[in-house]
C-alpha cells in the first residue's frame, strides 16, 4: 500500500513551504501566456505544431523552470516570450499588457554565448543601458555594479574571447539584467558547461536572483537543475508541445546542494522521470543487432 502514497509524495509540502507558495501566488502576475500556439510550415507543405494552446502565469520574482523532451518547443516558447518570434495564435502578456517584438523589459540569456566579441566585458554590460539612452558615465558606473554582483569586476577590461564558458555566461546574465528587465528568459544557459562549473553557476544564479527584483523563466533538460533552481516546474510534452504538469517544488529555500538527497527532492525527481522517461522510451528507435566484433567475452 506504500506505492501510491510514495507516488504522491511530491505534492506534500511542509507548512513553511506551503505558506511560501501561498504568498507567492498572492504576488501580482508578471508574465502571462494565454492559449499560445505556434506552428511552422514544413518543406513538404504541411504544418508542424511546435506549441499548442499553452497557458501559464509567472508571479513576481518567481523562478519557473521549463522542462521537457527535446523538440517539445521549449526554445520556441522562450523566443515567443522574448518577442523574437510571432505566435500563430494566442498572446503573451507582460504586466497585463500584450507584448510585441523584443524589448529590454524581457532580458534573455542564450545557450550559445552571445556576448559581443568586439566589446570588453564592461562595455558588453553597458550595451543595453546605452541603447536605452543612458549617458556614458552613468552606464559605466551601473555596469561596474552588475559586474560586482556576478563577481567579475576583475575582468571588466577583458574581451569575451579571454573568458571561460562560465564567466561568459555570468557576463551575459549581468548584461541581460543591467537594463532592469521585469523578466529574465534563459534558454539552457548552462547547457554547454561542465558539471562542476554548472553547479557553481546554479548557485551563483540563485544568489543573483535573491538580490534582484526579477522573474526568471529557465529552460533546461537537466532534471536536477530544474528542481534545484525552481519554485515551479512547467513540464511540457512533445508533438505537439503542451503543458503536461505544473509542479510546485516542495524543497525549502534557501537551496543547498546537500538537498539533492532529501526526500522532497527525490520525490519530485521521481515524478519528473515518470513524466519524461516513458516518452523517451517510446521515441528511442530500436537499433538492429549487428555484431561487429569477434572478441569472445561479452561487455555485459
Amino acid at each position: 500500500m506504500s506505492a501510491p502514497t510514495q507516488a504522491q509524495d511530491y505534492l506534500r509540502q511542509a507548512p513553511a513551504v506551503a505558506e511560501r507558495f501561498r504568498r507567492l501566488k498572492e504576488r501580482p502576475v508578471v508574465l502571462e501566456v494565454r492559449d499560445l500556439t505556434r506552428s511552422f510550415p514544413t518543406a513538404a507543405g504541411k504544418e508542424v505544431t511546435a506549441l499548442r494552446n499553452l497557458a501559464f502565469a509567472a508571479h513576481r520574482r518567481e523562478f519557473t523552470c521549463i522542462i521537457g523532451p527535446s523538440g517539445c518547443g521549449k526554445s520556441t516558447l522562450i523566443r515567443l516570450l522574448a518577442g523574437l518570434d510571432e505566435p500563430t495564435s494566442g498572446e503573451v502578456l507582460l504586466d497585463g499588457k500584450p507584448v510585441s517584438g523584443p524589448c529590454p523589459d524581457r532580458g534573455m540569456v542564450f545557450q550559445g554565448y552571445t556576448l559581443f566579441p568586439w566589446l570588453t566585458v564592461k562595455r558588453n554590460v553597458m550595451f543595453g543601458l546605452q541603447m536605452a539612452g543612458m549617458e556614458k558615465g552613468q552606464a559605466e558606473a551601473e555596469a561596474l555594479q552588475w559586474l560586482e554582483l556576478v563577481g567579475l569586476i576583475k575582468f571588466k577590461d577583458a574581451y569575451p574571447a579571454q573568458l571561460s564558458g562560465g564567466m561568459k555566461q555570468r557576463v551575459a546574465i549581468a548584461r541581460a539584467l543591467a537594463p532592469n528587465p521585469r523578466v529574465l528568459l534563459m534558454d539552457e544557459p548552462f547547457g554547454a558547461l561542465d558539471a562542476q562549473t554548472r553547479s557553481q553557476m546554479q548557485h551563483h544564479l540563485l544568489e543573483i536572483w535573491r538580490n534582484v527584483d526579477v522573474t526568471i523563466l529557465f529552460i533546461t533538460h537537466d532534471l536536477d537543475e530544474a528542481i534545484y533552481l525552481a519554485d515551479r516546474i512547467l513540464v511540457l510534452k512533445a508533438h505537439p508541445g503542451e503543458v503536461q504538469e505544473l509542479i510546485e517544488v516542495p524543497v525549502p529555500r534557501p537551496r543547498h546542494p546537500a538537498q539533492t538527497n532529501s526526500p522532497e527532492f527525490l520525490a519530485v525527481r521521481r515524478r519528473l522521470e515518470e513524466l519524461i522517461h516513458p516518452r523517451l522510451e517510446e521515441t528511442v528507435e530500436k537499433l538492429p543487432i549487428v555484431r561487429l566484433t569477434k572478441a569472445g567475452d561479452d561487455v555485459e
Binding site: G83, R106, G107, F110, F127, M131
Partner: peptide
C-alpha cells in the same frame, strides 16, 4: 537577436 532583446 541578443542586441534586440537589449533594446537596440
Amino acid at each position: 537577436e541578443a542586441a534586440q532583446t537589449l533594446g537596440a
